[in-house]
Design a binder for these strands. Structure first.
Length: 486
RNA sequence: GGCGACGUAGCCAAGUGGUAAGGCGAGGCUCUGCAAAAGCCUUAUUCGUCGGUUCGAGUCCGACCGUCGCCUCCA
């Protein structure tokens, strides 16, 4: 089946066709880097990560550009957060941005979000933005006033087509103190000169100043992906006015359509409200990782289609943690069984054994993902597989190595490579091998006690291990164990 | 005022016109020295309300009721 994507621009499900047969180019708006990232950011970037991973599964090479905003925002009346944050710490805004870009990368690494091909910083592209703005003036799409350059929306009847809100553009682009000399209320700032001593200003034909909020993304996308590219991603919250402005100015500048497909990720909400740094209702990724495993967080964020909003709730995260633990434990059991099953037990005939239905899982999974990256349904397929594997492990003690490896491969490819909710070594980290051997040694000791019917000694070992964070389960033929989620 | 989303069991929710997935919780069972885990079984005559289209509607259309988000910066 063909990959279909819901295009926020056409508001329709469209068959995906990239400009290039092999390469897919995508741009995703990055955060304004004045603080640590929170779970709301995680929702957007995990979603986009899964998009990129699924495209790779489908055989594409993906060029993924993420643009970080480190040039400050033009907002009168309030000091820029980069500037105020930097002053608080006694460093420059650029240093502050640097700190939080790396913090962002750390968090995303921890969540298993694969690095973008290119991480672009707006501040490195200011000269190019200046050229871009000059082009727009030459084209008659922008005009200078006393201390600003504005984009003129008048010639663009379809301005605001992404949000379908012309009035939204007007309201959103109201300038508070300045900008009375705008020709149209919906016009937006491309450049503003700065008299103040803010460190965030650059030279331009219009004097020292800063580029507008929207021009940075357009220029970064164009710099690395060309005038027109396949996918533009970002949070739904940026649609008005940011994405609308990006779209209209790019098409004005380049005379070609901007991105072919627009993917807008739904909000993460807390008690119904959008999670945001401003409202103070956010949970940083660093703090979330103290409570839940990275896979549980991904699972939670992917448990609804990316376009929809998700409510952050503790019990939902806890349920996600349980589900993911269940998955990991099943895979651990599976891998232990594989180790115990000798190849001589018929790996050659394995594929034809009791589980002829196994290939369906891959197909069902891909069908779900091909339908606008329906991760919710894809997770359902994974958990159907978990059940089937669980049944096989308990019921069919003679499952062949081939069958077991086929199952393991499905888990690796789908839950691991595409969804990123299955780490390479399940439940074991760096010193995993040593831990494993120590636990195995204790279990042997306990097993001796059990054979000798010395229940209290055996139970003492069990409860001590439990205290440390190792849960053990006696099976019909062996004892398995897992590290409990911390 | 403008744009939009959503109302399905105690809770979270999937449902692409063809006779209500799944998960959590709860209850029971199997296994078991006891646990735990796992597996099995049970848990909505019904999808906010009222109309309409249809052989057939949770699904399409209309109206109404209700909840919520966005519209300064924000993923």
């Amino acid at each position: 089946m063909a990959l279909r994507i819901y295009n926020a621009l056409s508001r329709k499900l469209e068959r995906f066709r990239s400009f290039d047969r092999e390469w897919v180019s995508m741009y995703v708006c990055g955060p304004t880097v004045y603080d640590h990232a929170h779970l709301g950011h995680a929702k957007t970037y995990v979603a986009m990560d899964v998009v990129a991973r699924h495209l790779r599964l489908r055989g594409y090479q993906v060029r993924y550009v993420c643009g970080f905003i480190d040039i400050g925002r033009i907002a009168d009346g309030e000091e820029d957060r980069l500037v105020s944050g930097a002053r608080r710490l006694g460093i420059t805004p650029t240093e502050l941005a640097d700190t939080y870009i790396w913090s962002f990368h750390d968090d995303m690494d921890a969540l298993g979000v694969l690095r973008p091909s290119i991480s672009a910083r707006a501040s490195c592209h200011v000269p190019r933005m200046v050229t871009w703005i000059e082009d727009l003036i030459d084209l008659g799409c922008a005009y200078e006033t006393g201390d600003s350059v504005y984009f003129s929306v008048d010639r663009f009847a379809d301005c605001g087509k992404l949000s379908q809100q012309v009035s939204g553009m007007q309201q959103a682009n109201v300038d508070l103190d300045r900008g009375q000399d705008k020709r149209n209320p919906a016009d937006f700032v491309l450049w503003r000169s700065e008299d103040s001593q803010t460190p965030l200003r650059w030279p331009s034909p219009w004097g020292l100043g800063a580029p507008g909020s929207h021009v940075a993304c357009s220029v970064m996308a164009n710099s690395y992906l060309g005038r027109t590219f396949d996918i533009h991603g970002g949070g739904l919250g940026d649609r008005v006015p940011h994405n609308d402005c990006e779209l209209v100015q790019s098409e004005a500048h380049n005379s070609v359509p901007s991105a072919k497909y627009w993917l807008l990720v739904g909000d993460l909400r807390v008690a119904g409200q959008r999670m945001s740094r401003r409202l103070g209702n956010h949970l940083t990724i660093k703090d979330a990782l103290k409570l839940y495993s990275p896979e549980a967080i991904r699972y939670f964020l992917l448990s609804r289609p990316y376009r929809e909003s998700v409510d952050f709730r503790r019990d939902a995260l806890q349920a996600a943690q349980r589900d993911v633990d269940h998955l990991h434990q099943t895979v651990r059991h599976l891998r232990r069984r594989m180790q115990e099953t000798l190849p001589s037990m018929g790996s050659g005939t394995a594929a034809f054994s009791s589980l002829a239905s196994l290939p369906d899982y891959r197909e069902d999974f891909c069908d779900a993902m091909d339908h606008d990256f329906d991760t919710a349904r894809a997770l359902g397929v994974i958990f159907d597989l978990v059940e089937e594997v669980g049944r096989t492990l308990t019921a069919d003690r003679k499952a062949s190595l081939g069958t077991l490896s086929t199952m393991d491969k499905l888990f690796r490819d789908l839950a691991g490579d595409v969804l990123g909710i299955l780490p390479e070594t399940v439940g074991l980290s760096g010193e995993g091998k040593l831990v494993e051997q120590l636990v195995e040694a204790l279990l042997e000791l306990r097993s001796d006690h059990i054979v000798a019917r010395q229940w209290s000694q055996a139970d003492a070992i069990r409860s001590k291990l439990d205290e440390i964070g190792v849960a053990i389960q006696d099976g019909p033929q062996d004892t398995s164990w897992r590290l409990k989620a911390s």
